[in-house]
């Protein structure tokens, strides 16, 4: 990975700001009943998404989890199309059929969020098999949370990727809580990278609050995958600032713990310091960036609010091709 330049640094910072503002805004709208079915806020986990997506190519594949707004925005989709999908409007990225948990644009390599914990790694592994079968120069990233790390099929898929040397990165967006269950209470052996290394692939535990560290590890893993050397497992330790779902009033962690992460490990604050100390921007310029992000999110909300609902009459359309009955 080349040395950090100004435009890259500002792009990374801005993208993390977009995610934070998007999530905090959507959270409030969700509490007002604007997001049917609710949502999962990713505030605090921006560096994992931005570090990963900035290190892979635009048309590389991702498949992700129920908490995937940040991955989707970092893949380059507009706040408008994501917000509209949260509102389940026809202009949303999944045309209002997916909602918050099912953001996707498969033709461009976004193979979807998922309502089922642990499903994303398998889908990404399959995409990697497709890439290998066709011989394309691409990779796939399967995002999974610490909760998904205890589903059997995730490990079935990691094993399959390992034996077939598939161009896959398993990226654990490890926010440490599976709903309200602390990862340390339910993870035998404790060390996820050590667990993964038993499957015969390079495995790392990294700082998920450092966007540059995530970016570096993902970039190296991508090179390995493209060289035909197979999958890499990256466990990025991060933290979510809000509950599992919007509106949660959990008692499973202390306010002190949350405050500690927010004040000392915030990925945006940490990277802002890097940007300023590297001379890429002044504090005032950072504030200007934040203001431009605010405007973008306000526009996204207005767009989502004013977008039309999907046509109810289309309810059974697109379930299948309808062509199996045609005599060939």
């Amino acid at each position: 990975m080349s040395k950090l330049d100004k435009s890259t640094a500002l792009a990374l910072l801005r993208q993390m700001m977009v995610i934070r503002d998007f999530e905090e805004t959507a959270d409030k709208l969700c509490l007002r009943g604007k997001v049917p079915g609710g949502m999962h806020n990713s505030s605090g986990q921006e560096a994992v998404a931005v570090g990963t997506l900035s290190a892979i190519a635009k048309d590389d594949v991702i498949a992700t989890t129920h908490r995937s707004h940040h991955h989707t925005l970092a893949k380059g989709y507009s706040a408008k199309s994501v917000m509209a999908e949260l509102f389940a409007k026809s202009t949303g990225i999944s045309h209002g059929r997916g909602g918050s948990m099912h953001l996707a644009e498969v033709t461009e390599g976004h193979f979807g969020g998922n309502g089922i914990v642990g499903a994303g790694v398998g889908i990404a592994m399959g995409a990697a098999l497709g890439i290998q079968h066709i011989g394309d120069k691409k990779i796939a990233v399967g995002f999974v949370g610490d909760g998904g790390m205890n589903t059997g099929r995730t490990w079935e898929s990691i094993n399959m990727a390992s034996i077939w040397k598939l161009p896959l990165i398993i990226l654990v967006d490890n926010n440490q809580y599976a709903v309200e269950t602390f990862v340390g209470r339910v993870t035998g052996g404790g060390d996820l990278a050590k667990r993964a290394s038993g499957f015969g692939l390079p495995a790392y535990n990294i700082d998920g609050q450092d966007v540059l560290e995530v970016r570096k590890y993902v970039s190296e893993a991508r090179e390995r995958a493209l060289a035909g050397e197979g999958p890499t497992f990256i466990n990025a330790l991060t933290y979510r600032y809000y509950g599992h779902n919007v509106g949660e009033k959990g008692q499973y962690r202390t306010q002190e713990e949350i405050a500690q992460w927010r004040t000392t490990q915030d990925p945006i604050d940490k990277f802002t310091e890097v940007v300023i100390s590297s001379g890429f921007a002044t504090q005032a310029e950072v504030e200007e960036l934040r203001a431009s992000v605010r405007k973008e999110i306000e526009e996204a909300v207005a767009f989502a609010e004013s977008s039309p609902e999907p046509e109810i009459a289309s309810i059974t359309q697109g379930v299948d091709s309808g062509k199996l009955g045609v005599q060939l």
């Binding site: 594949v61 498949a63 498969v106 193979f111 499903a119 398998g122 889908i123 990404a124 592994m125 399959g126 995409a127 990697a128 098999l129 497709g130 890439i131 079968h133 066709i134 796939a140 099929r153 898929s157 399959m160």
Partner: peptide
């Protein structure tokens, strides 16, 4: 999952 992901691809 392998078949499905490859089919989507």
């Amino acid at each position: 999952a392998a078949g499905m992901g490859a089919a989507m691809y």
